[in-house]
Design a binder for these strands. Structure first.
Length: 270
DNA sequence: AAGATTGACAACCGCAGCGCC
DNA sequence: GGGCGCTGCGGTTGTCAATCT
């Protein structure tokens, strides 16, 4: 097929950004706003590709960024989120205001990995390093969780679902296992994780403890189940455009953003 | 003091998803 | 429905400073 390159590499700068380039980028975005990264460099008079401009802005120049060291609370929150989400740095960053996915990814690789290893915890599986192989393998499997139960009946031949199975999703059996693992790991951690299949209300699958209590509401999309009910990814029927309050309030509260369950300052870690 | 090694983090690369035509 | 372009994401690399030998 052959996609055109994102920029004319021969005429673009690479490497570290200069103060002047930063100033130009900031001035342009202040005047015109974010977006249209491909045409931005030319319009702003920068010899950079749009991708580079976007990265520079998002990771270092955005005014709402919180620079400086990570706090102990942030450390522990990252660990908890990583145990749930894996290397979904953008999702993790979304729970840490002022932090970027790149920053968190780097911090994880340089600090937290070592910290967990020092604690005798495998940073990939969040299980003890001396865990028997079978248990470790089980935990590793849990990091790749799927919609299998929710979708196999109706969507056996759905390629998209197959892809989701390979990436991230939640299966009923595996979800329960995941929750059990989570509880073992962090017995004091209450993330109010409520996951259910996307718009498969007639299938009694993926029932969390909370759902058992409430009768198992399950009409929400995957985005909603991740607490992204107002995101562009939300496709569930209850999240209508215009966002009636009843619709959005019906969505689950992954990680307790709305309910405040995930007030990490109140979380205790051993 | 100088070279080697390690650590931290900024930046790049390639791919996938999505929307538009 | 399929091609194309844009954007965002995650993995990897590059660079520089600090530390070690």
């Amino acid at each position: 097929m052959g996609r055109s390159p994102c920029c004319e590499k021969a005429h673009t700068n690479k490497g570290a950004w200069t103060k002047e380039e930063d100033d130009r980028l900031i001035a342009y975005i202040r005047a015109h706003g974010e977006g249209c990264w491909r045409s931005l460099p030319k319009a702003a008079g920068l010899l950079r590709c749009g991708k580079s401009c976007r990265l520079r802005w998002i990771n270092y120049l955005r005014p709402d960024l919180k620079r400086g060291n990570f706090t102990e609370e942030e450390d522990e929150l990252i660990i908890k989120l990583h145990s749930l989400l894996g290397n979904k740095w953008s999702l993790i960053a979304g729970r840490l205001p002022g932090r970027t996915d790149n920053e968190i990814k780097n911090y994880w690789n340089t600090h937290i990995r070592r910290k967990l290893l020092n604690r005798g915890i495998d940073p990939a599986t969040h299980r003890p390093l001396n865990e028997p192989a079978t248990a470790a393998a089980t935990a590793a499997d849990v990091t790749t969780i799927s919609f299998t139960c929710a979708t196999t009946a109706a969507n056996n031949n759905n390629n998209k679902e197959e892809k989701e199975k390979k990436t991230i999703g939640f299966a009923c059996k595996e979800e329960i296992l995941h929750r059990q693992v989570q509880e073992e790991r962090c017995p004091d951690l209450n993330l109010e994780l409520r996951i259910s299949p996307p718009s498969q209300s007639n299938q009694p699958v993926s029932i969390s403890n909370q759902q058992l209590k409430t009768g198992g509401r399950s009409e929400l999309c995957f985005a909603c189940s991740l607490g992204l009910q107002n995101s562009k990814d939300c496709s569930c029927s209850i999240n209508t455009i215009g966002g009636s309050s009843s619709a959005s309030s019906t969505c689950y509260d992954f990680l307790g953003l709305k309910s405040g369950v995930l007030d990490y300052r109140s979380l205790e870690m051993k």
